[in-house]
């Protein structure tokens, strides 16, 4: 199958690769760039494990072809915090035991980045609503909801 050029800025670095037009964004990130923190849970847009920020907004990388988003800016879990440190959101997840197997976690963290950017001090219902597009099978969400609330409290307004 013929290949097309895809140009993406991922976590601040620019990448150019030739891939098949049908190549999914999630495969581009994982297989071409080696950014395996973005996970695949359903390939149908249901579970949110593949959530990334696409030009600043959450997007399901399993639902986009890489070529469709060529020219965009992407943030993956690898770009959320500097090497070997935790962002306030990640730290809140850590302190509240908001992850078990961790498979869903990158998606939840990126969803929380957007949630708190849009609403820096959400109440519990707003947090729950903000998280409904991500599925976690391990935690029962209880500690994720607590972690998001704590992250909101600990973050100066507007910080990602």
């Amino acid at each position: 199958m013929s290949k097309v050029e895809v140009r993406l800025t991922v976590n601040g670095a620019e990448y150019v690769r030739s891939v098949e037009p049908r190549y999914l964004l999630v495969d581009f990130l994982r297989r071409e760039l080696g950014l395996t923190g973005t996970h695949i849970g359903c390939e149908q847009g249901v579970c949110g494990a593949c959530t990334v920020l696409l030009d600043g907004q959450t997007a399901r990388s399993c639902l986009h072809f890489a070529v469709q988003v060529s020219g965009s800016e992407i943030t993956t879990i690898e770009g959320v915090s500097a090497e070997a440190s935790l962002s306030p959101i990640q730290d809140a997840f850590h302190r509240n035991h908001a992850l078990q197997c961790g498979y869903c976690t990158p998606g939840f963290v990126l969803t929380t980045v957007e949630l708190l950017r849009q609403n820096p001090s959400p109440d519990e219902t707003e947090i729950r609503r903000g998280l409904t597009n991500n599925v976690c099978r391990c935690t029962g969400y209880v500690n994720i909801i607590k972690a998001v609330a704590e992250a909101a409290r600990s973050m100066p307004t507007g910080e990602g």
């Binding site: 395996t36 959320v80 850590h94 992850l99 961790g102």
Partner: peptide, 18 residues
């Protein structure tokens, strides 16, 4: 707080497809 969070929270986890 868990040790494994350090790698699982930052995208450094290594699952089978990784």
């Amino acid at each position: 707080p868990r040790r494994e969070d350090a790698w699982l929270l930052t995208g450094q986890g290594c699952y089978i497809d990784d």
